[in-house]
């Protein structure tokens, strides 16, 4: 099965793409190698690290555990589409301003996860932020600055 290529249409960051990929290809594979959208990272390829996190119809998903064939009509949002027409989204600016980035490998996943959180809850408290980020691993920062960035965006420590 994995050898046979199949055609599908994916809506990524508002644009339709026709892709030809093996039936067992993950969304992450298709984004990175098929569409050249390399912002979503492959850290572990089994759901643990969160570096590949994207939004499907606004909901968080691991693109490494999602088959491209299973995306269907759901709209995919990746880090490349997160700021829309702006240079940076509010979440991205908050991370930059707090110095919450070191090597940056985990950052796309954190940005997506925080974007989903702030869309649901514009003023999350520290515990809500920590719980929301618990599925994203960062090997460099120790998390403190990332949580601080989110707290600043939420309007200070509550």
């Amino acid at each position: 099965m994995s050898q046979a290529k199949r055609r599908s249409v994916l809506t990524v960051n508002g644009e339709q793409h026709h892709v030809l990929a093996p039936a067992a290809a993950t969304l992450l594979d298709v984004l990175r190698t098929g569409l050249g959208l390399t912002g979503s990272k492959c850290g572990c390829n089994h759901g643990v690290c969160g570096a590949c996190t994207v939004l499907l119809d606004g909901k968080l998903a691991r693109s490494c555990l999602t088959l491209a064939a299973d995306v269907g009509e759901r709209r995919v949002t990746t880090i490349e589409g997160i700021a829309g027409d702006l240079d940076f989204s509010a979440v991205q600016r908050a991370l930059v301003e707090s110095g919450a980035i070191q090597c940056g490998f985990c950052t796309p996943g954190f940005v997506i996860t925080l974007t989903e959180l702030f869309a649901r809850d514009p003023h999350p408290g520290r515990e809500t932020i920590r719980a929301a980020l618990s599925g994203n691993l960062c090997r460099c920062s120790g998390y403190v600055k990332i949580v601080e960035a989110a707290e600043h965006l939420a309007g200070g420590v509550r």
């Binding site: 099965m1 067992a24 089994h46 490494c64 555990l65 999602t66 088959l67 064939a69 299973d70």
Partner: peptide, 26 residues
């Protein structure tokens, strides 16, 4: 069968299984 895929796709990625076909319950 594939439901959420959270375990199945991880097993495919790790080449632990190579299913002949998938049956999506979505």
């Amino acid at each position: 069968l594939i439901s959420g895929g959270a375990t199945l796709v991880a097993m495919i990625n790790a080449r632990l299984i190579e299913p002949a076909a998938l049956v999506s319950l979505a």
